[in-house]
């Protein structure tokens, strides 16, 4: 504030970065959410389809990997919207930098497409496969994919896990933003992606056994998410002054209301209670529960993204 210090501060104040980071808007929140959702869909569908079935599973499960690809493309579309130099997108693929999560992400995204497309082909029931083969010359591809079934599903699973963790690490490695300076973000976004994926599938008609399994997995993922959030907040609160600042934002500070009300209460606690009632009382599932889980997943990304951009070491006294 003192004029004599102006020169010093002017070297520190970078437009767009100080006092608050402003480069990431809603596009990135939606992208991170869709990325997590896609990761969850890929992981869950690979697990559910791991063993070949006698009867074709529900339509949405047959289509899950392909739907995941559509959602991923949507997400990349929002990402592309965010790029300032849209034509330079190819540059991501001229190099691979093992220390950069953005580089990892760019390559994971590219590798997921063929793998998920092939497992998508495998996942289709005989009826849909027949329709598709009539239109496209894919007989050879399908035969090859069927021989490599376990490998392909395993690769899809791995791709899903990689994608889920990467969406969290992307923020987690930006340690200059103290709200993101935690290793928990990777696993947190992965489990949140799993619960979003399960919730998405639960919005559609499913076999009783699959539905039951998904509800239980969703409950597990939500519970783990709660534990990870608790450890994240506790970690902040017990870290140094920077961590204290990050904890304050969530414990009484600017982001307290949206974080606890939208993410924890609406997105985790209430769906958990609804799902446990559902299992205990054998009630029919209603769309409200998965809808709340999905909204909570979106809120988690949006709140952490915004809170992180609002936080920085400059705020330290």
């Amino acid at each position: 504030m003192l004029p004599t210090l102006l020169e010093h501060t002017s070297t520190r104040v970078n437009a767009e970065i100080d006092p608050v980071l402003h480069i990431w808007g809603w596009e990135i929140a939606v992208y991170l959410f869709l990325g997590g959702l896609v990761a969850g869909l890929l992981i869950l569908s690979s697990l559910l389809l791991w063993r070949p079935r006698d009867t074709a599973p529900a339509r949405i499960l047959q289509l899950a990997p392909l739907v995941a690809l559509v959602l991923l493309s949507l997400g990349m579309g929002t990402l592309f919207l965010d790029l300032a130099y849209k034509l330079h997108v190819f540059r991501f693929y001229l190099a691979f930098r093992p220390t950069s999560p953005m580089s990892w992400g760019a390559w994971i995204l590219v590798l997921i497409y063929p793998v998920a497309a092939l497992s998508g082909l495998l996942a289709l029931g005989p009826e849909l496969q027949g329709k598709l083969l009539k239109k496209l010359p894919l007989v050879g591809v399908l035969a090859w994919a069927q021989r490599q079934r376990q490998v392909l599903l395993g690769a899809t699973l791995a791709g899903g896990v990689g994608l889920g963790i990467y969406t969290g690490l992307l923020l987690g490695t930006l340690t200059a933003r103290i709200q993101w300076n935690t290793a928990v973000l990777g696993p947190l976004f992965l489990t949140s992606g799993l619960s979003s994926g399960a919730a998405f599938l639960l919005l559609f008609k499913l076999d009783e056994a699959d539905r039951h399994r998904l509800v239980r997995w969703d409950m597990l993922a939500l519970a783990v998410e709660g534990v990870l959030i608790a450890s994240m907040v506790l970690g902040f609160a017990n870290a140094g002054a920077a961590g204290q600042l990050a904890a304050d934002a969530l414990l009484g500070g600017a982001w307290t209301a949206s974080f606890w009300s939208l993410v924890v209460v609406m997105g985790i606690a209430v769906p958990l209670v609804l799902e446990s009632i559902e299992i205990k009382k054998h009630l029919p599932l209603v769309a409200v529960t998965p809808a709340l889980v999905l909204l909570g997943g979106l809120a988690l990304r949006a709140v952490l993204l915004a809170a992180g951009q609002d936080s920085g070491f400059r705020l330290l006294p």
Binding site: M266, V273, L274, I277, E278, K281, L283, V288
Partner: peptide
């Protein structure tokens, strides 16, 4: 949320 919890748990 409270209305949804109450209505759902009451069937």
């Amino acid at each position: 949320l409270g209305g949804a919890l109450a209505a759902y748990s009451a069937g």
